[in-house]
Nucleic acid binder design. Structure first.
Lengths: 199, 199
DNA sequence: ACCCACACGTGAGGC
DNA sequence: TGCCTCACGTGTGGG
């Protein structure tokens, strides 16, 4: 009952990193490898390397075990079982995640498209407002993304008149800066052109 | 040199499903378990169960190996190594997929929100057109989703007048069915209410 | 007492 | 030849 209780799998942390070259103490089996006069019993040359090999295998088993979160037992067989079920679980997880990702991927697809024909006209009005007329292809969600982007940029559409001709939006609206910021005509024009391009 | 070459890991498919109870042939070791007179050498009772245990372990090892796609060697140690690296790879994959999923998750979040105050008014016009007035909270992307959904349902917005008062959309538009379908006033009204609710 | 899980040494086969 | 890998039987400790 000294400290011989944890040597079911006779590997510890020492077996992982450093073997510490101690073939010395701590052998589970107290088999008679020594004659009663103290002389060693003959061991085939394999014995040593074979012991090392088994230690390597157990080390690998331990590494495998350390990777698996859900552990039932410390026995070799249950380590295998846990690892197996864990791999299956991980596989399922990857599978479901990928298809879940692909399911919402198409919503991002409209980013990559041929450049639509667009027309942007910007005129300065009184106050700090701009009058804007835009024509661009009627891509699904185009107007929404336009508004989102403009909102992100601090452009507020005050009176928007949206007409959907077949295959195109026609939008006329007033625009003003949200924080009372001054708006430059050409800047806004190019901005809107860029926005519409990436819609 | 008969057929003794594949018994490195002396497990086959038979070890997986059915053990086929054949303790008979095919033992690798030709150790002398029989005396020269043909009588069996004494074996401790452990021998049989221990052999079974090792077969179980090898079976598990084989199952583990069968789960791992990339296999370098058939040796025990490389099976361990492959399984270990494979688990790590799967872990990384799951990790990256989940965070990639979470990165585009927020765009879906506006599905779950408190019910906004809405107002929908529908009037019948000449021909098969309806006049619609809608007021609902100015949630980001609301108008886009409205148009998408209406498009999906075969409702075409002919002349849309969109006004963004602070915190709300005010939309007046004519609507007609895309395929020349007849539109019922109350049906369209409830439809629009439902659409706006889920926006 | 029994059973189980393990490490060990050993002989055999493959490279 | 030698080295590596494996299955086998055995002894041992824990439950």
């Amino acid at each position: 009952m000294e400290q011989e209780h944890d040597i079911r799998l006779s590997l510890s942390l020492e077996d992982l990193g450093f073997n510490a070259e101690n073939d010395s103490n701590k052998r589970k089996s107290s088999k008679k490898y020594y004659n009663e006069d103290g002389t060693k019993v003959f061991l085939s040359k394999n014995a040593g390397s074979e012991r090392k090999r088994k230690q390597r295998l157990n080390t690998k088993l331990f590494m495998l075990w350390s990777l698996v979160p859900m552990v039932t037992n410390m026995t070799k067989e249950s380590i295998f079982n846990d690892a197996i079920t864990y791999i299956k679980k991980l596989k399922d997880e990857v599978k479901s995640l990928t298809q879940e990702l692909q399911a919402m991927e198409p919503k991002e697809k409209f980013k990559e498209r041929a450049e639509p024909k667009i027309e942007v006209q910007v005129e300065k009005m009184d106050g700090n407002k701009l009058w804007v007329k835009m024509i661009f292809e009627n891509k699904r969600g185009g107007f929404k993304k336009l508004m989102e982007t403009m909102n992100d940029l601090g452009l507020e559409m005050i009176e928007a008149n949206v007409t959907t001709i077949k295959g195109a939006y026609l939008i006329t609206t007033f625009i003003k800066g949200m924080g009372g910021q001054r708006l430059d005509v050409h800047q806004v024009k190019h901005l809107l052109q860029d926005i519409i391009k990436i819609i």
